[in-house]
Design a binder for these strands. Sequence first.
DNA 1: CGTGTAAGGAATTCTGACACG
DNA 2: CGTGTAAGGAATTCTGACACG
Lengths: 77, 77
Amino acid sequence: MDNQLMSIGMVKELTGLSERQIRYYEERQLVFPARTKGGSRRYSYEDVRKIREINQKLKEGFNTFELKEKRGKKNLM
Amino acid sequence: MDNQLMSIGMVKELTGLSERQIRYYEERQLVFPARTKGGSRRYSYEDVRKIREINQKLKEGFNTFELKEKRGKKNLM
DNA sequence: CGTGTAAGGAATTCTGACACG
DNA sequence: CGTGTAAGGAATTCTGACACG
């Protein structure tokens, strides 16, 4: 994981989502950002892509549990 | 510049250099990181590459002024 | 000249919780 | 369930300066 370099602030800018939303997706085990020594999250572009997709699916009516299932079965994310 | 996303802390890790060195190369106009609203520097991979090259050249005996000239003439960096 | 460091401040991020629904 | 927010703390980064050489 040499490519997780964005702070949550960058992700916030790129996606337009709130820190709360971004952290929540992690809490629900949908994204797995790295951590610095200090404990801050570090995201990759791939994570940003996932986060966008998750938010999109949620808007479409799915819940985080379904998204997790879907990932397991179809390995799409 | 959508790809300047690393904090100086990340660059420090990737290059093994000190913040002082990294900032100094900017002061000497050898690298041009972006800035967040808050004022922190944001580096791209390209910047990291330049920083490594600069440090290498300095070890070889060049000074920052020469490095700036070289860049202008040969457009290598 | 290139780099170290202590100084004080400002911006960032973290966690756990209460809230709504 | 997904998200907002106020709370207090910890880690990060910033600038300007003094130091050495």
